[in-house]
Design a protein around this nucleic acid. Structure first.
Lengths: 329, 329
DNA sequence: GCCCGCCATGACAACGTTGTCAACCCGGCG
DNA sequence: CGCCGGGTTGACAACGTTGTCATGGCGGGC
């Protein structure tokens, strides 16, 4: 038995065990044609006996492709991103690929680190929810032949990108409130520096404009979710307070609800149990699963050799009335 | 320029570019001591110019350790598991390790496939939420020196294991209902073949026994979450219906709520917005983050060479009264 | 002034796999 | 009976990195 005491058996060990050449074992392991059935069986038995598993690192080194992709999101524990994650995983599974994933926590440095780590592991492609705006560091990787897709936000590079119709969605949500008689609608959103947040604010303004309502900066607050409750409280105690609120993402919607305010409300992002609250929370829903699946499909199309100009896909949103958005002033 | 047209530059290319030996580049890349500062700078510049990144596959092949661990959970999109996932990722980050993760979807075959894929990629260790009960296939991997930790459920092998106090938690939840005057408490749980589910049912029975109440099989229903609503409806329309319900996991709790029933209720698993429903939902909370972190810590302790007998950690649960569990019959 | 020893650098093999190409065996055909 | 060809099997190099060991140069001590 050539097999060393510790460590895993290698093809060499299997070859010795079966009394054949290394290359024959390789052929069997890879199911290549042109191996006599008897031989295949003999080798298979040896593999079984030794508990041999192919060393993927060596294989990758030799072949160049890793059959894995990298996924960088903001936070696995956020349902929006875990929905994306799950969809990507499913598509990857169908393509025989593994997913390396990591959470950037909205920190550009950490994102960069993750991406470079993934590249060092020679993933075939990347799906990135961009945290910063500067992705110049990706250039060399792209030039080296790594495919990349941006999801949820554009990354400032000319690669395939999948977005939601943030501005249109926000516009329809705000228009919904206006249609129900509100003329003072507040906007509580994430930091304006985040792309999606900026787009949603733009949609809000557009809805006001289209309804001939003035834009009042005192009705707009952006920042982390924890600040949304207090911000709204201040607005409500001011003079000429808002009668309705549009919230720019799921965390902020929940923060507002938790703060105990119950104004007319439409929120961006659907969330579980939105229908069970009283009143039900009207939302502009995105489809994270579709977002993830689309991004992954685009990526695998590139990996399969798809040339052509980078695509930019914009997914629709859907307004789901549940009660809170239909309250009158 | 030795660097080939396509493909990434290698250490050899960097060496040529800098006019030094391969090994010197290796030393610089790895920050090894004993390189003259001037030399380090020269090599660093060449690395920068070529956009060199170390090929991790080759490194792994040579060194044997991959600085990555595998995580097999049931479903990334389930908040309980994504909480675990996030915690594992954090701990791994601190240890300079990457996390490969995959969802088994409660399918033992898929779990096995994932684990073996991870092993082929030579992860240093595994954290597994076991789907099936037969993990004999892991034996050879363990013997080959891969560390493994079971999380959330025991896996039938003698390795480190982190569990929640399922039985104790269920017992306290049911006791809470009984203390509020209920004598007919239903149990709606997941398939009894799942470990956690069985334990929780045991806790339920124990609470009844301790209160001197009879066990009535017609008040117990197990199966997929979709069947929980109808099952409860049948119980409620029967004669001598339950006045309170204990639900065996978060999905079932939500299913019951969504079905429109509002009996006195305590649910296993906390969930977002449980406090905002009316009445608030009283739950027996687990701590997925702590579960994941503990499992990861145990794993890294082994990877650092920890010997000793396998540990079995049981994490406490916490009863959080919010209203639904305090309703009187 | 010379030798010893240390420090910086380099040459080389090895990790486990796969692609290339050569060798071999056997049967069938001329 | 010999040769040819197809179908199997095997030998060998190469993938990019790191560990081991050798080499060379330089400073300090005697």
């Amino acid at each position: 038995m050539t097999e060393s005491a510790k460590g895993r058996p290698t093809m060499k060990d299997v070859a010795a065990e079966a009394g054949v050449a290394l290359k024959t074992v390789s052929r069997v392991v890879n199911g290549e044609a042109g191996v006599a059935p008897a031989m295949a069986e003999r080798v298979g038995a040896a593999i079984e006996r030794l508990g041999y598993r192919r060393n993927e690192s060596a294989r990758v080194l030799r072949r160049g492709r890793t059959a894995s992709i990298g996924l960088v999101i903001e936070d696995v524990a956020d349902p929006f991103y875990s929905g994306i994650s799950r969809a990507v995983e499913n598509v990857a599974l169908r393509h025989g690929s593994l997913v390396l994933s990591g959470s950037s926590g909205e920190d550009p440095r950490r994102e960069r680190e993750l991406v470079l780590t993934f590249c060092a592991r020679r993933v075939d492609g990347l799906i990135i929810v961009p945290a910063g705006s500067d992705h110049a560091y990706l250039r060399p990787e792209l030039d080296a032949g790594i495919a990349a897709v941006f999801a949820d936000r554009p990354g400032g590079l000319d690669v395939d990108t999948v977005l939601c119709d943030n501005s249109g969605g926000a516009r329809s949500g705000v228009a919904h409130l206006i249609a129900h008689g509100h003329r003072r609608v507040a906007f509580l959103g994430d930091s304006a520096s985040i792309y999606t947040s900026g787009e949603r604010l733009a949609g809000y303004r557009r809805a006001l404009r289209e309804a001939g309502l003035p834009y009042d900066a005192s009705l707009v607050a952006t920042g982390p979710a924890e600040q949304a409750g207090p911000a709204l409280a201040r607005m409500l105690t001011g003079d000429d307070p808002p009668t309705a609120v549009f919230t720019g993402n799921g965390r902020i919607t929940v923060a507002v609800l938790r703060a105990g305010h119950r104004p007319a409300l439409v929120g961006f992002d659907d969330f579980e149990l939105a229908d069970l609250l009283v009143p039900g929370v009207t939302v502009v829903a995105q489809d994270p699963a579709r977002l993830g699946a689309t991004a992954a499909e685009l990526l695998f199309r590139r990996l399969a050799g798809g040339r052509g100009a980078p695509e930019r896909v914009e997914l629709p949103t859907r307004l789901i009335p549940r009660g809170s958005g239909e309250l009158r002033p």
